[in-house]
């Protein structure tokens, strides 16, 4: 029987914890929240029970709630997105007193609340999205400057999440307009090349699998969906237009989550899918290996009913340590979990 064991519960944030993530080496856990701080957590090597402890608090960067936080692929920079309409770039400075993060740039431009920030896999781009309905792409300059490369107004409502493709400069965004949109660079501009329609309510989050050919989405409509990329001229008879790939919804999982599903994380090592839900639970799924890849079925492996005392806002698989999952909640806590199959 598969299990999800609680490794530790991490207090510290003074308010809702909105987002969790890892650095790309899997050694630092990062979180942010209502208390306008970003916190970095590392495993305490002196303790026997492998506890994670907070070793840095990044404050004074934002005036309002920090909604999202993301490590750059080089692990040296952190980007945080806030309801104050800005995005801060924090840079690691090593001094005699140890490592410290300093806010070295503030990206302004969104009209209002920034909901999410994400670095591209190449490290060349940063994406942000906002209640102002726009998605922005920032180009990272050699001198540490960030230039706006595109302002994309494809969505008709609040944009909740932006996620980059794991290998290519392709961006996916999820919105209150119930759709997911895909963007890529064309000539000297960014264009929307796909709209994924199937959810009946806000799409809260999304995650690519390790290949980047499958996408999982979760929604306020209490479902999660799996989308598959079909290239032009594919042998499966899936139509494409304008020589761009078609993303087709190949699986919908309903009647499992009794409340909105706020976040979804697709483990690039194990293929496990974790969800964070408004029913305070964390669930783990996998695609049934026996099922047809063009109509896969999701197998529910674990449910932790009272994973947190309130809504679970975010879940993130550790990119290196197999089966290690982080979560955070309205209950002001983070938790670290270990999956055992």
């Amino acid at each position: 029987m598969a299990r999800l064991d609680e490794v530790c519960k991490l207090p510290g944030h003074q308010g809702i914890v909105w987002n969790v993530g890892w650095n790309h080496e899997g050694t630092i856990l990062i979180s942010c929240g209502e208390d306008k701080t970003v916190r970095l957590w590392a495993r305490n090597i002196n303790s026997e029970n492998n506890l994670w402890v907070c070793h840095s608090i990044l404050s004074d960067g934002h005036q309002r709630t920090i909604r999202s936080v993301s490590f750059s692929p080089c692990n040296k920079l952190i980007a945080s997105a806030s309801f104050d309409g800005t995005c801060c770039i924090w840079e690691k400075k090593t001094s005699t007193e140890g490592n410290q993060y300093e806010c070295t740039a503030t990206l302004e431009g969104h009209e209002n609340e920034v909901k999410c920030v994400a670095w591209s896999a190449s490290g060349s781009f940063l994406a942000t999205c906002s209640r102002d309905k726009s998605v922005w792409i920032w180009e990272v300059g050699e001198d540490g400057d960030f230039e706006c490369a595109a302002v994309l107004s494809a969505h008709t409502q609040d944009v909740k999440k932006v996620v980059w493709h794991p290998h290519q400069d392709i961006l996916a965004s999820a919105s209150y307009d119930n759709t997911v949109k895909l963007f890529c660079e064309e000539d000297d501009d960014w264009v929307c090349f796909g709209t994924l329609k199937s959810h009946d309510s806000t799409v809260w989050s999304l995650a690519f699998d390790s290949s980047g050919k499958n996408l999982a989405t979760c929604s306020d409509d209490r479902t999660i969906k799996i989308w598959k990329e079909y290239l032009p001229g594919n042998q499966f008879g899936i139509a494409t237009s304008d020589n761009t790939p078609t993303w087709k919804c190949v699986c919908t999982l309903s009647a499992v989550h009794p409340r909105a599903v706020y976040d979804i994380s697709w483990c690039h090592q194990t293929g496990l899918i974790a969800t964070a839900s408004g029913d305070d639970a964390i669930r783990i799924f996998r695609i049934d290996p026996e099922s047809d890849p063009h109509a896969p079925t999701l197998e529910q492996l674990v449910t932790v009913p009272r994973a947190h005392e309130q809504d679970v806002n975010s879940v993130a698989w550790n990119p290196v340590i197999t089966g290690l999952l982080a979560s955070c909640s309205d209950d002001m806590h983070l938790k670290v979990w270990q999956y055992k199959g």
């Binding site: 302004e108 431009g109 230039e147 706006c148 490369a149 595109a150 302002v151």
Partner: peptide, 13 residues
């Protein structure tokens, strides 16, 4: 266009 305006304004700022 907005993105270029944005970069100009931020530089000025």
């Amino acid at each position: 266009g907005f993105r270029n305006i944005q970069n100009l304004v931020q530089k000025m700022k």
